[in-house]
Design a protein around this nucleic acid. Structure first.
Ligand SMILES: [Mn+2]
Ligand SMILES: [Mn+2]
Ligand SMILES: [Mn+2]
Ligand SMILES: [Mn+2]
Lengths: 175, 175
DNA sequence: CAGATAATTTAGCCTTGGCTACATGCATGT
DNA sequence: ACATGCATGTAGCCAAGGCTAAATTATCTG
């Protein structure tokens, strides 16, 4: 099968249709590495999102209810309690929480620290989105995802803009 | 084991330590559903991120090189070519690309449409971050992750702010 | 054209993060 | 005190996305 006939090629480009110029431009090789670095950063952020959301939520629950039960975490996240159980086990393995059988979830020092960083970023992003005119509910929803991809530089810029837009004197040359 | 002794409880909160007031406040039940909805949206976005990045990149490669080979996709993303192969198979299953054995990757109409939407969002987010003062490289990296979580309302706000900040006349009452 | 090089495909492995169904333990109300 | 309901834990399933190693196919070069 597929003996190499040349006429069944409708739509799919060939592997190497001689891209017009024979000499390979070296200008796109470094750009490849740069793109790869950016995508790798996004992948890394995706892998820590869940841990950040969990510890932030657990911290919130402890502050509000005095405890963080896995059933409450499950209801807040909208996932099953089994998913929470398994994820919390990973968080414990990674040193962010401690658990004991049939007890509610406690944060380690590292977990509390991560929760505080996560909450700070969450607030900066959410406040910023509201400040630039996004309605509160959409701002909260977008912030829940965007927060994990905002670098320190972007957070600083967000805080700067939020301050500028929140002040009555939006048009001062004040820096 | 674990006969129910009450003294080995160091650090882990009990399951139900009677949260001070016996009456359950009904004000936090609707908040639970709202939080769950936000988290669900972030999860949904996470599931489409990869498809969006792939079709956008494939579209870019076709525009620039005249073709999109999986090896180029792999190098741009910084993942193995096997990962690209499997992901592209899923994209084909989902109707975004077409492939033929040992041929390069082609976009379907749906794939091209998604690529255009993804590129537009990408540009809006990246331009916006630069406009508020984030350096170009950080802006590009953050945009790569944030773009997938920006709703239509947020994108509109970004465009508005970018226009306002890019104009020389930052302080006009122009709307 | 034959060999070398490069790209693709297949096979098989892993972790994460979802789920259902079922089993077990705790807490509370009567 | 104990039944009963709710919370937690276990077993087992799945898909997505990552990987390495090895086989196969194209493309290029001499
Ligand atoms: Mn958050
Ligand atoms: Mn989040
Ligand atoms: Mn993109
Ligand atoms: Mn992206």
């Amino acid at each position: 099968m597929h003996t190499g006939d040349a006429d069944d090629n409708d739509g799919a480009a060939r592997l190497s249709p001689r891209p017009a110029s024979g000499a390979a431009e070296p200008g796109q090789a470094p750009q490849l590495a740069t793109m790869a670095r950016r995508f790798a950063r996004a992948r890394d952020a995706r892998q820590t999102e869940i841990a950040e959301d969990y510890v932030e939520l657990i911290d919130d629950l402890i502050a509000r209810d005095g405890r963080a039960r896995s059933v409450d975490v499950a209801r807040a996240l909208g996932v099953s309690h089994v998913t929470v159980f398994k994820t919390v086990s990973r968080l414990q393995r990674d040193g962010l929480v401690t658990t004991a059988p049939y007890r509610s979830i406690a944060l380690t020092e590292a977990g509390r620290a991560l929760a505080q960083r996560a909450r700070r970023r969450h607030q900066i992003v959410a406040r910023f989105l509201r400040a630039i005119g996004v309605d509160a509910e959409t701002a909260a929803a977008d912030a829940e995802g965007m927060e994990h991809h905002a670098s320190a530089a972007t957070l600083s810029a967000f805080e700067r803009m939020t301050a500028r837009l929140t002040d009555r004197s939006t048009c001062e040359d004040g820096d």
